[in-house]
Nucleic acid binder design. Structure first.
Lengths: 212, 212
DNA sequence: GTCGATCTGGAATGAACGTTCCAGATAGAA
DNA sequence: TTCTATCTGGAACGTTCATTCCAGATCGAC
């Protein structure tokens, strides 16, 4: 494993590059074949680095997965920032814009999301499970905020409650949109995001009434 | 492999029972650990039958998966029959009832759906991919019919078009609801199904206007 | 009671797996 | 130039894997 003491820039850069290439290779392969379906030898071949380099950078295959997920989660958190709402913008219009932006992550980070979804369904690894839970919670919180923002002008006092009431549905639809896109790569995530925005505007309106 | 020629009832029954127990064990294990994460030895242990029995009933591990999926798909097709619509029932009300019924499959056949979803994301096996495609197409067709039925009275001529326009979204939300339920087993699929019904009623109404 | 098809028991096989080991290459530091 | 931490190359190890093999158990048929 690499230490971080007195090292020179070039050595560090080389080490970091190798580490990154191992993670890239692992992410690509695990997204297609899954964790158990990807062997360390596969990762070595795909990254062009020998077996021993992998075990110099990581303690185990599970450690590689944890690092892949850690890096992916960081990128994901950056990518799901909701846009600010424009003044006078209707909930439906804001949701359309925000969902469209959020949908970009579906095509930009498919490998991470594939592994993430696979792990959601089957993972015995504790570290991986923890990251899955964190990513899921973050995604949900982001949707709560998005929906709250959408209704902030229409119903300032109940906007958060509307977000809470519909976030699980939004998250489910979002997950499902990703799955659909993986099954049918030619499909349009934009249409799904637009319909999701319409659905949330309607459900949010219903929720507002029930909360009144 | 078993032949089906001159066999007596008791022998046949015993063979069928063993075969079923192997499939049960394989389904249970693969739903949790995935295909690659489940070994033939695991299936033998879980089913209480020796290794050789498994290879007498099936030609390979991939063959077991194919049989698990085949059996699961049959059960799935039976389970997703849409209820008839009541006279005068609003689209929203019919969708609520039908979605509630459809949602039952989420809790009744979780193992099959877990494997199905895992295979959607990562399967190199041709037979398995074919069954996944069939199940997905059937599920989508069922949703098209459900939504069409919901709007059959309101707009007899455009009901089918509404179904087509919203089925992909419905399928995505349905998939996502299953995923959410797997991640949070204590969650309420009924609320998600109800919200999905509301969303489809709203989206269907929008689609009707656009089709006019 | 013997026969033959059906199924089980358990050992065996070779390939692939994750992991370890260590000798050597690399390149800045001294 | 020599030294030392960093990284690579490739062989090696023990285990587990899917699969095969075959002798024996089972039980209706005759």
């Amino acid at each position: 494993m690499p230490t971080t003491s007195t090292t020179t820039n070039k050595r560090l850069a080389q080490g970091a590059r190798s580490r990154g290439e191992i993670l890239d290779a692992a992410e690509r392969m695990m997204a297609v074949r899954g964790f158990d379906g990807t062997s360390v030898a596969d990762i070595a071949r795909e990254s062009g680095l020998p077996n021993s380099s992998i075990y110099w950078h990581f303690t185990s295959k599970a450690g590689i997965l944890a690092a892949v997920m850690e890096r992916g989660a960081e990128r994901f958190f950056v990518a799901v920032e909701n846009p600010p709402r424009r003044e006078g913008e209707s909930p439906r219009d804001y949701l359309g814009r925000a969902m469209h932006a959020a949908g970009a992550v579906l095509v930009e980070q498919p490998d991470f999301l594939r592994i993430f979804t696979l792990l959601t369904l089957s993972s015995e690894d504790e570290d991986a499970r923890e990251i899955v839970a964190r990513v899921r919670a973050h995604g949900r919180a982001s949707l709560v905020e998005m929906i709250g923002r959408a209704f902030a002008e229409v119903a300032p006092d109940r906007a958060d409650a509307v977000g809470e009431a519909t976030a699980d549905f939004a998250l489910a639809a979002f997950d499902g949109a990703f799955l659909a896109l993986q099954f049918t790569p030619t499909g349009s995530h934009e249409q799904l995001m637009d319909q999701l925005a319409g659905a949330l505007a309607a459900l949010g309106g219903d929720a507002l009434e029930n909360l009144a």
